[in-house]
Design a binder for these strands. Structure first.
Length: 889
RNA sequence: GGACGGUUAGCUCAAUGGGAGAGCACUCGCUUCACGUGUGAGGGGUUGCAGGUUCGAGCCCUGUACCGUCCACCA
């Protein structure tokens, strides 16, 4: 039974209905299936605090395109979804939430707080998932996971214990990045260096036992001097050689500190003397450890000065800075203050200036783990698209520091370390030990810290598939194929997944990493909450449809590049959906109730063969582009084919036959051939379009082919040799050239559309005349497109009156009697213009061909091509002159 | 201080070394029976600058300017 599309394209109702149909049909679900090859993508798990933003929309659109495409290609395509507990992000949100109800985190305690977190997750954790559905994401929701569900938590424990036993995880007092606002450590990846205007304070430290000599140091952080335990100079610095080993008076602190020599000091920078504060500067920390210096912590966790700071105790670090500078000035020890811009580490979440502190924390030793991850890209097991991101990946890995994984948060995976209250013994184990293995007493308590949220995400590609259990899924779907993510989280996530994958499974967790850029606003600014320039994808979907949004996000941008978001672009995308909607509706209106018989391509008429040949080529090219992840180029080709070739030309040409009486050539019906071609090409084009615009393509496809359940499981088209018709492509190209030529002339002459003329087409020779006659014959009544009263295909221009307008084609010239077109002078001017243009072309072309270097060195085909062009120019020129002669010129 | 990306039409961006393109915007037409969310015809560019390689350069090489991004322990 023939079906019809709704009169108007309404994405809203359509998309909701189709998504439900897909879910009900179970098309998103993948199973272990030995008969097919697997194709796997793990979805970067969005935070449970998340609201869908343009970054998610882009990221998930790209993944959905790939997964839908591979599914159609016959792979068992698994898109593994899930959400991330997002330790700090969620904890902050829940604290805020509780605060609004007058509840304080610390008052209710850990257990109670975690209950609220889980409650919060139940309440809001699914929100982003439902938003991803609106986008059309065909993820296997039956397999949805959560980083803190039982399986993922088991994986975390397993990895922690394994790495601990191997000595790769250790607890130690090291310098860490401390966020005084969030009250937790953060990893290097979470520190953002921001240039800030500050000062260089030059301070004199008196030398013990010398009245007049000082050591002048320069610092950007004078308040940390209370924690100084040395001053360092470069061992090769002649200026200070005699100072090494001397003691200095540390002003305001009432202590003395030594001068030491360390090559870390740059002779050229500042004064060449550096105050060393091991407890509050990463470099100083290293220097301090090398020289066995004391680490004096002078700050509380909230960045106020602690009890070791005398009169400054209790002051905020910046308050103390002012006070100390003032006091130094009063003592006459402040030499000068020089403005200085420097990069300050800030917490990427809250923007607070990070305080380096020495704290006992848990770390992952990176040196050994990094090795296979580095090797992976060097031997090609792992590739980045675009390739340039390999360098960024490598650069980070080659300079990696140990990863601080403990966080002073409650929401997350708690570190499985237990301490004996009585003897201090530490036990790392899956379960809490009942008794202390050392002293035998029973007062054990668990480490209060939790793990960095990225510790669990690092395991995502295999933990979601069942690891550490040996599941059939893990065996079949792992390693995954492509990871799609933004360049901004290569450090946080991609790297950690890779080294974790190698360490735990011996394999790279994925073969390719497809990197995309940021979606910016129309002014090129990052979308951000504070700027208020964010565009809500859901609102865009609501107004224009998910298909339009998706098309917008992949059109016209290359992998890895940022893009700007324009509503004009969304509108254009929506218009495209509307265009194909109406074209399809037109085709379906013309289809008969009964089925059209299958046809053999070789029995078709030239125009049919042409469009078949074109979609055949487009199919091949699109597939090649997609193989190279050039999704923007691929969709551009589909778009152009559908709009410019199929709608603007083929449908228009096919109309000649649809609207006239049927006729049979050989054993093929005119109309049936057109209808079969329309239907076949449209169906195939919808398949190509489906990964990009799943909803509209599904609706059209299933309406066009009422027997088909869904386009989702249809076969991805492949190139067919028997659909290649170069000869017909050439013929239709000539026809199009003729139509365009006539339109242009009529426009130039201001001929009203109503005015029809005679049209004479003169072939160069008999063979061409016959070919043209047969072509025009096969097209049906093409006079409408040519604005013709009658079309005469003839062998000689003698039959035409002298005064006429011509359109010159490769093998023929078309003439329109001038008297029907009004303006003689205008036509002469036009011919002269054309003639001059030909002269230029002939000069250019013959210039090239007269260059012996060109003819001898350029490829033969190129030279031949140029010769053919020149020949055509000359013929055209000749005909123009001929025409001018008819006007007596 | 390193590394990377960009510089092409008014705007946003494309273009395996072989006559510079698209979308939007602009100009001038069209109530053509699928679509005005449409359709036809146009205008508009010394491809940042300077060299080089090549028969031939937007594309390759060198240098340079500007914009942007990432990394980095010059206190």
């Amino acid at each position: 039974m023939k079906k019809e599309l709704a009169k108007t394209y309404d994405p809203k109702g359509l998309e909701e209905r189709l998504y439900k149909k897909w879910l009900d049909g179970g098309y998103f679900h993948a199973e272990v299936n030995p008969d097919r090859k697997p194709f796997t993508i793990v979805m970067p798990p969005p935070n449970i605090t998340g609201q869908l933003h343009m970054g998610h929309a882009l990221d998930n659109t790209l993944q959905d395109i790939l997964i839908r495409w591979k599914r159609m290609q016959g792979y068992e395509a698994l898109w593994q979804p899930g959400t991330d507990h997002a330790a700090i992000a969620t904890e902050v949100k829940v604290i805020q939430h509780l605060k609004e109800q007058g509840i304080d985190k610390d008052e209710i305690g850990r257990e109670e707080f975690l209950k609220h977190c889980w409650e919060w997750r139940r309440e809001y954790g699914g929100r982003i998932v439902s938003q991803l559905c609106k986008l059309g994401s065909s993820a296997d929701w039956e397999r949805e996971r959560f980083t803190m569900d039982e399986g993922c938590s088991d994986a975390v424990m397993e990895v922690f214990l394994k790495l601990y036993e191997k000595g790769y995880i250790y607890k130690g007092s090291r310098i860490v990045n401390w966020c005084p606002k969030c009250q937790t450590t953060i990893s290097d990846a979470e520190v953002e260096h921001v240039d800030q205007d500050g000062f260089f304070w030059h301070i004199n430290y008196p030398i013990v036992g010398e009245e007049v000599r000082f050591v002048e140091i320069a610092t950007t952080r004078p308040e940390t001097m209370l924690g100084d335990t040395a001053v360092a100079v470069n061992p090769d610095d002649e200026r200070y050689k005699d100072l090494v080993g001397k003691m200095l008076e540390l002003p305001l602190a009432g202590r003395t500190i030594p001068v030491i020599a360390d090559s870390y000091v740059d002779k050229e920078f500042g004064t060449g003397c550096v105050k060393i504060t091991p407890a509050h500067d990463p470099n100083d920390f290293e220097v301090g450890r090398r020289h066995g210096l004391e680490e004096i912590c002078i700050l509380n966790d909230d960045a106020t000065m602690n009890g070791k700071c005398g009169k400054y105790t209790g002051m905020d670090r910046y308050e103390a800075r002012k006070a100390i500078v003032k006091d130094l000035e009063d003592l006459g020890l402040l030499v000068k203050v020089v403005p200085h811009t420097h990069a300050v580490g800030t917490h990427d979440r809250c923007g607070t200036t990070v305080e380096p502190m020495v704290k006992p924390q848990w770390f992952v030793r990176m040196d050994e783990l990094a090795k296979p991850a580095i090797q992976a890209v060097k031997n090609g097991d792992l590739t980045f698209v675009p390739e340039r991101y390999t360098k960024i990946y490598l650069n980070w890995l080659e300079n990696i520091h140990d990863w601080c994984i403990s966080r002073q948060l409650w929401w997350g995976h708690r570190i499985p370390a237990y301490y004996c209250d009585d003897c201090g013994e530490m036990v790392v184990a899956k379960e809490a030990p009942a008794v202390c293995p050392k002293c035998g007493r029973t007062h054990m308590h668990q480490d209060p810290d939790t793990l960095d949220t990225w510790f669990s995400s690092a395991l995502w590609p295999f933990s979601t598939l069942g690891w550490p259990k040996k599941t059939p899924e893990l065996d079949y779907f792992y390693p995954t194929d492509v990871l799609v993510t933004g360049y901004d989280i290569i450090f946080f996530w991609v790297i950690r997944m890779v080294f974790s994958g190698y360490e735990q499974t011996g394999k790279s967790p994925f073969h390719h990493v497809l990197i995309h850029g940021l979606v910016r606003d129309s002014l090129g600014r990052k979308m951000s909450k504070s700027l208020g320039n964010g565009i809500d994808p859901l609102e865009v979907i609501d107004e224009y449809g998910a298909d339009a949004l998706r098309l917008t996000l992949v059109t016209g941008n290359a992998p890895g590049n940022d893009m700007r978001f324009y509503f004009e672009q969304v509108e254009a995308s929506r218009n495209f959906a509307n265009k194909i909607w109406n074209a399809s509706r037109f085709i379906m209106m013309n289809l008969p109730e009964e089925d059209i018989p299958e046809m053999d391509a070789k029995d078709l008429f030239p125009a049919d063969k042409w469009i078949l040949s074109r979609i055949n080529t487009v199919t091949r090219e699109v597939t090649e582009n997609m193989d190279r992840y050039e999704l923007g180029i691929a969709v551009q080709k589909i778009h152009d084919f559908l709009w410019d070739e199929f709608c603007d030309w083929y449908i228009e040409i096919a109309k000649f036959r649809l609207t006239s009486d049927d006729s049979v050539r050989g054993n093929v019906s005119w109309k049936a051939a057109a209808l079969w071609t329309l239907k076949t090409v449209l169906a195939q084009a919808m398949k190509l379009l489906h990964p990009y615009m799943p909803f509209v393509s599904e609706e059209i496809y299933c309406t066009l082919l009422p027997g088909e359940e869904t386009i989702m499981t249809s076969d991805w088209p492949v190139y067919k040799e028997e659909w290649s018709f170069p000869e017909e492509e050439r013929q239709i190209a000539a026809f199009m050239e003729l139509v365009r030529g006539i339109r242009a002339i009529r426009m130039e002459m201001n001929v009203p559309a109503k005015t029809k003329t005679d049209l004479f087409v003169v072939g160069k020779n008999l063979e061409i005349v016959n070919e043209l006659r047969s072509l025009f014959d096969s097209l049906g009544d093409s006079s409408r497109m040519l604005f013709a009263k009658a079309i005469h295909i003839i062998g000689s221009k003698d039959e035409i009156g002298d005064e006429s307008v011509s359109v010159v084609l490769s093998d023929a010239t078309a003439y329109i009697p001038l008297d029907e077109l009004v303006d003689r002078e205008k036509e002469i001017a036009r011919l002269k213009d054309e003639s001059a243009k030909m002269d230029r072309e002939i000069a250019r072309s013959s210039g090239m061909l007269n260059n012996p270097n060109f003819t001898s060195k350029a490829p033969a085909a190129k030279v031949e091509e140029e010769r053919a062009k020149l020949e055509k120019y000359r013929a055209t020129k000749h005909q123009i002159l001929d025409q001018l002669a008819r006007y007596g010129l």
